[in-house]
Write a protein that binds this DNA or RNA. Structure first.
Lengths: 130, 130
DNA sequence: AAACATTAGATGCGCACGCATCTAATGTTC
DNA sequence: GAACATTAGATGCGTGCGCATCTAATGTTT
């Protein structure tokens, strides 16, 4: 009898996703803040900016690869800019657009934070973690 | 050469977890709110109260099976109580403790919301979703 | 039993979030 | 080219969160 109780499976999968995610995210958030003064979103933003080869990214492109709402990303970039980890430059061709570029300080901060990030991840999801 | 690049794998797993979780959670949050006036946390709390057989649960026991901080759970239960979906009763033996019991209205609301919940889950994580 | 430590849960606080809206620039239509 | 629609990103607003702290009840020590 196929499809007997797929609901239970579904809910169970979701619950483990929920639990697992929150454990990791919470720990990451706390640890990154303590050790490097970065929010998880801030770290992830820097990460996108270093990983993707281009040195400049439009907000929009950045948004596509992220999980944040448009407004949340906007504010995250604002915070990073205020801290000097990122620079905003107007797009010449389309002056509505905004380019975001990581600064040297940003790259440095990211390099340090990366170790912490990896350590926390390793601690939580090394084996098969649902 | 074992352990060559476990870092990349680790980060990739995390990223997909992050993305997947946020998609589902965000949709769930929005849909549950619209259709039933429930927060995700509120729904999950009701879910714990109906699924676990006991009719009464101490805050502490409830907290163990959940992903929320103590304060967040406390406020979630407050909201549910204000809406009449849950009842708090003092524990006689240890008067610091608080029992939480789902009400008939709560059970009803949960029953309706469950359909929505399952539908959203099905929509997002039917196949192999990382 | 008086003083101290611990524990259960509530609450003040600051913060990041999503939604809706606003502003300014670009595209489109007549 | 003037009026309207659309688009990129910023901002007002309300909300739920975690952390730290507070309150009240229980345990423990002497």
């Amino acid at each position: 009898m196929p499809g007997m109780e797929p609901e239970t499976d579904l809910v169970e999968r979701w619950r483990s996703l929920l639990t697992c995610y929150n454990k990791v995210a919470c720990d990451l958030e706390r640890t990154l803040q303590e050790a490097h003064g970065l929010t998880l979103s801030e770290y992830e933003t820097l990460d996108r900016l270093t990983t993707q080869e281009r040195d400049k990214r439009r907000m929009q492109d950045l948004a596509e690869t992220m999980y944040l709402s448009q407004s949340a990303l906007s504010r995250t970039v604002s915070r990073l800019a205020k801290g000097g980890l990122v620079e905003r430059t107007h797009c010449e061709i389309d002056r509505r657009g905004v380019f975001v570029a990581i600064t040297e300080a940003g790259r440095q901060r990211w390099t340090e934070a990366r170790k912490t990030h990896l350590a926390v991840l390793a601690e939580h999801l090394t084996p098969a973690t649902a």
